[in-house]
Design a protein around this nucleic acid. Structure first.
Lengths: 202, 202
DNA sequence: AGCTGACCATGACAGTTGTCATGGCGGGGC
DNA sequence: GCCCCGCCATGACAACTGTCATGGTCAGCT
């Protein structure tokens, strides 16, 4: 009775490295690999996967979206998000999408194997540091429009450009930006967009 | 006669994954691991390393600086930069620092092993796609000061704040920013900082 | 010595941005 | 029904930003 695992990561070296690492564990069997989220969702169904290790940043379908799809179609498969950055925003989105585990790539291999066993037993595994940071941040105070204008602000667009693409008046965009700046405690649209992005508010 | 390899990467899973992957090769022996650049430079000297796999983003001493130090003190050790992003700027800096190879984490494991063997034989190994992209981008047109102010602009600091931390006048900072905006072909400090960062000009 | 280029600075100007007061519109909750 | 909130809009104001002209210092090069 080995645990059937799928590794999904767009970087070949990381993907194969994780697979090689897990193959050292007697009770874990890496039966498939995927380089993008879409492929991962297919392989989960085909290979009756028990646990899926999922990177966040992937082409075609990102890890969060892929997790949501798997949670809907294959609830028997537990998804563990394995990500580079300890973004609390990713954590919230991942759990909302139905992920059963969340670890950063900085954790030692032994802990990853243990996490796989735990989620397979039905437990949840979340990096404790990240969980604490997530709690201290509170919930997203931004309205939909504010998120939208902040996303554009992130790319360095001017007010006029944002207003044009969103079919709004320049003044309205400025108002949304202003309130977003207040809510994030920033002094700039740039800093507002940065902190909002860090906290996963976008 | 096996090749003695050191793996330096701050993310434990990636580091151990690479080690596990390379241990499958008969002629390659991973004899040490480092979580930061400083430790890597020490281990290279202690373990008479043949080839060092080096990540770019690391605490204490980044991969580029560590490469430079190793190239000076242990010229017998070949350094291969293994990085996530195909930033052409990193490539140039790495080669200037004395790296003998440059591969992205998207390359398959077999190619990585082959790259290790090649640099051990004295050859250079550079991702061909990246080399081409690097040539098409041209050289960094930014002066030192312009890079500096752009780095601060990236975080959303105001002109006054940048001027204060750099012990300059606000007008001077504006001038540097303005010329940086011209050189990058942007319309904003934000867009200028973004494109400069993408091309590895910072 | 003369030239060039990076660097620093000042002052002036137009344009953009952040803030505020004010108001209209629509949906949800008490 | 009334109130609150998100959304959209306008106008005005102060502050900030990007550009330009000008001029100074200093190092390197011919």
């Amino acid at each position: 009775m080995t645990i059937r695992v799928l590794v999904a990561d767009d970087q070949a070296l990381v993907r194969q490295g994780l697979a090689a690492l897990l193959s050292l564990e007697a009770d874990i069997d890496v039966v498939a690999e995927a380089a993008d989220g879409l492929h991962a969702t297919q392989l989960v169904a085909e290979h009756s996967i028990d646990v899926c290790l999922m990177d966040v940043q992937m082409p075609h379908l990102d890890g969060i979206a892929a997790t949501k799809r798997i949670a809907e179609t294959n609830p028997n498969c537990a998804v563990i998000i394995v990500t580079t950055f300890g973004r609390t925003g990713y954590l919230k989105q991942a759990l909302a999408a139905g992920a059963r585990g969340f670890v950063v790539k900085d954790t030692p291999a032994a802990q990853l194997a243990e996490a796989i066993r735990k989620v397979h037993r039905g437990l949840r595994v979340v990096d404790p540091e990240l969980a604490a940071a997530s709690l201290s941040e509170g919930t997203n105070p931004l309205s939909d429009r504010e998120k939208e204008v902040l996303r554009h602000a992130l790319t360095g667009d001017t007010v006029a450009a944002i207003a044009h693409t969103l079919h709004l008046t320049a003044g309205t965009v400025r108002n949304h930006l202003s309130s977003a700046i207040q809510k994030t405690g920033a002094i700039n649209r740039v800093q507002a967009a940065r902190t909002a992005a860090e906290r996963g508010w976008l």
